[in-house]
Simulated assay, not measured.
Amino acid sequence: MDIIEPVKRLAEKATGIGFPSREEALACVRNVRPSRMKFRDDGYIPNNPKFPLLHYRKVLRFGRKHDPAAVLEKVFNVNGWGEAWRNGIYDYVHYHSMIHEVLGIARGSATLQLGGNKGKTVKVGAGDVIVVPAGVGHECLKASVSFLVVGAYPPAGTYNECRGSFQERNQAIKAIGRVAVPEQHPLYGSHHPLW
């Protein structure tokens, strides 16, 4: 997957085949109410004291005309969430202290641990989208062979990866409190508040 997806993405952009227009991508987004999950600081993973993790189940309907990963990239990009990547989710708990993240499931299914070791185990599948606030721990426990995620970030913030070490904790907690609410929702744009 590490070699195939980047080549596939370049071919889609160069040829336009499998790459949806703005209208085609946005037409795949359904109006879905998310599951809201709030996690406490467990002494290892700080989580986010203000914002809940949002899990939108089956929020995207993928047709056969376009590659699901390209649809997710287009939807996120149209709504101002860029720097998209295609891969899986790390199999160890981690969080980002200086930026929020959106994860869209393009293919396959997985079992994720959200909120750290004392958090919640959740099953996800193609068409699901998870908005992970800064500080919220996440990891993949088990994934199907075909599991593919598209991740992206809002324009404000800086990517970093924290693993819950004691040395990074105090700085991470301060940074989490400074991360602003994005101006646009990664699925619904400015028409819908994120939190």
Rank of each mutant, 00 (worst) to 15 (best):
I4N: 09
E5T: 12
E5W: 13
P6T: 04
R9C: 01
K13S: 06
A14L: 06
T15F: 00
I17G: 01
I17W: 04
I17Y: 03
G18A: 09
F19P: 04
P20F: 09
P20I: 10
R22L: 11
L26A: 09
C28P: 07
V32R: 13
S35I: 14
R36S: 14
R40W: 09
R40Y: 07
R40L: 06
D41A: 00
D42H: 12
P46D: 00
F51L: 11
F51E: 09
P52A: 12
P52G: 09
H55W: 11
H55L: 15
Y56L: 04
R57Q: 12
K58P: 04
R61D: 14
R61S: 14
H66I: 09
H66F: 15
P68Q: 00
P68I: 01
P68V: 03
V71F: 08
E73Y: 08
E73H: 11
V75F: 11
F76P: 00
F76Q: 01
N79Y: 09
G82A: 12
A84R: 08
W85K: 08
R86P: 08
G88S: 09
Y90W: 09
V93F: 03
H96K: 04
S97H: 06
S97T: 09
M98H: 12
H100M: 03
E101C: 05
E101H: 01
E101Q: 12
V102G: 02
G104F: 02
G104M: 09
A106C: 05
A106F: 01
R107F: 00
R107C: 03
S109A: 13
S109T: 10
A110I: 06
T111C: 05
L112I: 02
L112F: 01
Q113P: 04
L114Q: 00
L114K: 01
G116A: 03
N117R: 12
G119F: 03
K120P: 01
V122H: 05
V122I: 13
K123W: 01
G125W: 07
A126F: 02
G127Y: 00
D128H: 00
D128K: 06
V129G: 02
I130P: 04
V131M: 00
V131L: 02
A134G: 01
A134V: 04
G135T: 05
H138I: 07
H138L: 05
E139Q: 14
C140I: 02
C140K: 07
L141R: 14
K142S: 14
A143E: 15
S144W: 03
S146V: 10
F147K: 00
V149T: 13
V150T: 10
G151Q: 07
A152I: 12
A156R: 15
Y159G: 02
N160Y: 06
C162L: 14
C162F: 12
G164E: 11
Q167T: 15
R169E: 11
Q171I: 10
Q171D: 15
I173E: 13
K174M: 15
K174S: 14
I176E: 09
I176N: 10
R178Y: 05
V179G: 06
A180H: 04
V181N: 01
H185M: 03
P186Q: 08
P186D: 07
P186V: 00
G189L: 11
S190D: 15
P193S: 10
W195P: 06
